[in-house]
Amino acid sequence: MKILVCISKSPDTTAKIAFTDNNTKFDANGVQWIINPYDEWFALVRAIELKEADPTTVIHLVTVGGVDVEPIIRKALALGGDEAARVNVDSQDSFYIASQIAEVAKQGAYDIIFTGKETIDYNGSSIGGMVAELLDLPYVALATHFELKGTTAIITREIEGGEEIAEVALPVTVSCQKGMAEARIPNMRGIMAARSKPMKVIEPIAADTLTSIVDFGLPLVKAGVKLVPADHVEELVRLLHEEAKAI
């Protein structure tokens, strides 16, 4: 079994969000970078669990990004990837990134490609579907469970107000979210082992960008909370009905 896990970096979940250069660039000053939580907790850890169940499994990691992503990829290797490839280019266009990942995937003939549900900075939830289309593979988005029965994957995905279970013959591309696995922390042995695991640097292939970011902005701040005394709950309900027109 060969698994490719797509790893992206994202700002720490508590990072202050600000912009520079006339609001055209994210202000990365002082920002701590982490592995995008969906990629780490759900995609990567599920891949590791599959390897634990079948030690012949190989886990490759791929990331598209500049040299500053390397600490993130090292951490992912420490958790349990076997080797990593970094496509040496920064881009914010999903199609461009997906084209790079698809190229790496083509070389590796993977049985399973895992992505996170979305990046918590750009929130595209697009890369997985794009990679699948580029490779002409089936795609299940927003998976909450993934099991293997031979070469068939049994995948549960979120639907409105419930879940749907489907069977797909491998190879398959899956975007992962909560439910797939439980978060882990790397141990010392893993961290040591990661130092000697291969990390290839690949130059990007030519690909189009279909979108571009014009600028960013911050949402308007709320006017402030209107407090209602604890013994006047019916007053809150009146406000919600008459003023906010919410109930």
Binding site: F95, S125, S126, A132, E133
Partner: peptide, 24 residues
């Protein structure tokens, strides 16, 4: 809609038609 189904279909269609996608 950028709902559970839109998230699965729109990115694929974007590649198929070479059409830029803005999700959400």
């Amino acid at each position: 809609s950028n709902n559970v189904d839109g998230k699965a279909i729109a990115p694929r269609l974007s590649v198929r038609l070479k059409a830029g996608l803005v999700s959400g």
